[in-house]
Write a protein that binds this DNA or RNA. Structure first.
Lengths: 189, 189
DNA sequence: AAACTGGGTAGACACTGTCTACTTCCAGCT
DNA sequence: AGCTGGAAGTAGACAGTGTCTACCCAGTTT
């Protein structure tokens, strides 16, 4: 395996195991078995390396989401519930990576390809939303955007205890269901 | 004005004007006109100083929110709309401070008094939600938590362009209204 | 008068990201 | 075959960071 791939792999491993603050350029190089100047041959700057690591995280999340969203022909509401669950599970099981992925100050937003990686996800969401909700009040992209923000907010706030503290719940499930019910309108059965 | 107060004031000024990455201990001390060792007499560590600065931001936000939420005897729905507007405006007008306030890795979560500062806010929210919504499906704290997460997610994602890009809107207003309508149920008039 | 103490300075230390020589080493050309 | 050029990697320097420690000096206490 080439040095470049090893750097990324070591970084992914470090961020999942020890959190974001362990991702110094020199320590990554150290654990990859190269000198502290070597990464510069593949990544012009520290931010570029972090971006590559974060992109791996995005790829992982995207894979899980698309896999879950396309799963069987269950009704869109159930798929959305699964999708939200995947999102929240990812954030809970992998807080370091989740944090890195949304630290836009540490990521080169252009080269990361945010458009390439987040728009497909958003399209899936929009599609499911259009087919799942029962009332047509706001335009689909707005609903999808609001729902995405809700998902992300739950993941973020839950991640550092605020919601657990405020709502008294010990699981993010009720919040997810509440968000879905809210944005999709009342159940129709 | 004492050195301690000046350090905080300088820090608040710096974060609002030049963003979070400018808040190095030494630069704050420099601009406050003291040596780089002086802050240590008031704040045992860099994180403690950042926390004090962030607390100022929380105080500011809390002041605006309570002021807006208690404003007149307008119906709770209108008050929630105003509250959300304040939250989003704060994040938009003061992105550096908003970022700092929710960088829990840079804040000493205990001494910051997250409970003291965020629970009152959450109580206001819960109260308004209980009185504003039209259907009683999930328990009020859950709805309030989900709504808060939605607000926060909109502020966060809007802050770095994702939602503007995805929804095509050029203002967070529609998203805020969509979130409120969703969580509070259909309008009743 | 002497001792102590809180507020402040200055310098050291280990560490960081970046930059710049300097060495290998191997592919491609004449 | 021999040379050359560039890619890959090393090692060291530099400025900057947060933290720690020794010192200093005015005021107050004893």
């Amino acid at each position: 395996m080439g040095v470049r791939a090893r750097l990324i792999e070591v970084g992914v491993d470090m961020v999942t195991r020890e959190g974001m603050q362990s991702l110094t350029l020199r320590e990554i190089a150290r654990r990859a078995g190269v000198s502290h100047g070597a990464p510069r041959h593949y990544f012009p700057t520290h931010v570029a390396l972090l971006s590559a690591i974060a992109r791996q995280g995005f790829a992982d999340l995207t894979a899980r989401v698309t896999e879950t969203a396309g799963e069987s022909q269950a009704d869109p509401r159930a798929r959305l519930l699964a999708l939200g669950g995947v999102y929240l599970d990812f954030a809970r099981a992998n807080p370091g990576m989740f944090e890195l992925m949304f630290r836009h100050d540490l990521l080169e937003s252009d080269h990361l390809g945010l458009r390439e990686v987040s728009l497909p996800l958003f399209d899936i969401l929009t599609d499911l939303v259009t087919r799942a909700r029962t009332r047509p009040d706001p335009a689909p992209p707005v609903v999808a955007g609001a729902l995405w923000a809700n998902l992300h907010g739950i993941a973020q706030l839950w991640g550092w205890g605020s919601l657990r503290l405020a709502t008294g719940a010990d699981d993010a499930g009720p919040l997810l269901r509440a968000a879905l019910d809210a944005h999709l309108g009342p159940e129709n059965r």
